[in-house]
Amino acid sequence: MMLQTRGLTKTYASGTGCMDISLEIKEGQVFGLLGPNGAGKSTFVKMVIGLLTPDAGNGMLLGKPIGHPDSRRKLGYLPELFRFQEWLTGEEVLRYHAGLSGLKLSETRSSRMASRIKEVLRVTGLNDRGADRVRNYSKGMQQRLGIACALLMDPELIILDEPSSALDPVGRYEVRQLLERLRDEGKTVFLNTHLLEDVEAVCDEVAFLHLGKLRAVGSMRELLHAGTSWDITVGGWQPELAESVGRSLLPGMSLAAGIQEPDGSAVLRITAQNREQIGYLNRLLMEEGITLYEVKPVQGRLEEWFLSMSSAAAPSGAGSVEGGLRA
């Protein structure tokens, strides 16, 4: 287990913070922590890192109690609202962090470290700016340097707090690609973000935090794909087919014809319980002589889930269901 927390609690004088958070993150998992602003996500992350002392609860990070310096030995962390020493160059920031990680001054200046620095700068798109002072970096470049810093010591667990904030669309795309690469390399990633498309693209499991409490935790598939919708673009569609196809649908499935053109092309909105049901529908349509052009998940379904979770009245203390709503 890379991270395990039990009843982690931190409350501020204002009453905000987070309460009784119990989470487990397994090796190789890409975990997304979601929640609206002020939900307590960053408070939770800071307790895990050891920046905040919990009021109650405990946890283990990489096999050591949270807060212990050794628990951070194989950890990479990108904070949300951070700054680097603007009077250092990008490369010097990375060398400084290598020193903070326990390397001697001579080791931080070794050719091995120089090539590692070059590598993380290349990965984050800063390869030709490493010798520039941080004060000359844009906000997006500082964010990239933060990611480079998190990756520097080849961590086993990478905690990224809003990694795409301050980045332009190209930067966001590159971060998503980086996340996918980390996942493919088998790294464990804890992602705290508002960008739901990032979560949707890379996360295996998500948790939803609202008003300081954990409302849901489970796999993306369990939380989002149960009873969700797909848009299917077809050719050769006739309005009367809606009834015949509809009769053959499995329980839990529904079909609604959306855009229908005179030439027979149409977009059908399908609600299904799982992907296998979509495969079944495909067979049905083929049997009716329909040409299937495209199947895609309905955009914004995570957003819908997020909004519904945020607005849901969620009284506490009624137990919890792994893989579903905690209420």
Partner: peptide
């Protein structure tokens, strides 16, 4: 206050040493 400590203290260095 300006966020410099966030990344620094996430490193495996005891605070007293820093």
């Amino acid at each position: 206050e300006n966020g410099l400590m966030l990344a620094v203290l996430a490193r495996p260095i005891p605070r007293w040493k820093l």
